[in-house]
Design a protein around this nucleic acid. Structure first.
Lengths: 185, 185
DNA sequence: GGGTGTGAATGAGTTCACAGCT
DNA sequence: AGCTGTGAACTCATTCACACCC
């Protein structure tokens, strides 16, 4: 068993926040006792949709795309790359991590025959919007985008960005502040 | 010239938000005219601390670390990797992108001799906390972390996470919601 | 007229605090 | 006694709306 206070210490949020958030989805605790760890974990997995496997299509098998295909960490967490596309004829036809790379021109046809839940975009910035549009047309509901721009998409399509340069740029403001003499806590 | 309305359309926020945010740092606009694009850009660069170069130390030169070293996108944005460390004797001594890889045991000494502003952590999860602690001891003020955990650090040290699996996991909740019949807008 | 900068109004999200269950 | 779940209070952020300037 664990109390909201216990969870709060671990996750560095307030106990009230823990209780409020959990109460949004149900009543998982017992007064006077706290939460059953195993039961809570299972409920959270279910709520977050992590108790099943998700099918992914990768577009762009350059440096980043190849790293994604060869990285074992997705599969073990229930995320399975089942299709991969690129425009480079040199690599089309190659098989990486049990996925055969197809030419991007086949993308829409193949995704209609064999739909996926999530698209990963690892193409140059100039191509990214067109790829996102194509994925959306094929019914993809979530996109993980490595291209350094924020593509337009319908409101119901979830988007997450992976952009290390932007992450660095978002820190320099605070670094600059530290250099000034009047440093506050 | 561009108005807050124009900026709002491009960036998909409200005009009021644009004006409020900019007013926090100064008065960059002219009534009836809007903002001078060039001048505004320069002010924002300065405010964000992007008008100078930042020195970076990379820890962990595995797959991810190597990709970072070989990626040209950092340098062109003013982020220069000037030191790199790993524990693997096979790669210590190698020179990648004009940076010689040093053994991790030399990290603290070398960072004190030749300080950096930012640390990039690309080591396995179990090592990450120790690396972050070492970087903090050397006066690093910002950390970009690729390890899949949230390391503890002093409040004044900025931290950004790059975690594709977490990004995927944070989308599945919404995907699951879409599957249910009662779909709202 | 057109558009900024800003106090006031509104809204979203967090914290408080306590009734009630174990 | 101990701790959850939750309405009420509060805090912080966003939006409104308008005086003022170009």
């Amino acid at each position: 068993m664990v109390s909201s206070m216990g969870l709060a210490r671990i996750s560095r949020v307030t106990p009230a926040q823990i209780r409020k958030d959990l109460s949004y989805f149900g009543r998982f605790g017992k007064q006077g006792r706290g939460y059953n760890v195993g039961q809570l974990l299972e409920e959270l997995w279910r709520i977050l949709g992590l108790n099943r496997r998700w099918r992914i299509a990768l577009v762009g098998v350059g440096k980043v795309g190849r790293a994604i295909l060869e990285y074992g960490g997705f599969d073990s967490q229930g995320f399975q790359v089942v299709q991969a596309f690129d425009v480079d004829h040199q690599i089309v036809g190659q098989k990486l991590a049990s996925v055969t790379i197809r030419h991007a021109s086949e993308l829409e046809q193949r995704l209609r025959e064999d739909p996926v839940d999530i698209g990963i975009v690892a193409v140059p910035a100039v191509e990214a919007q067109a790829v996102v549009d194509a994925l959306v047309r094929c019914g993809v509901k979530a996109i993980l985008n490595y291209a350094p721009l924020c593509p337009r998409r319908p409101a119901h399509v979830e988007l997450r960005q992976i952009d290390p340069v932007l992450a660095l740029q978002s820190m320099t403001f605070h670094l600059k502040a530290l250099e000034q003499p009047a440093k506050r806590r």
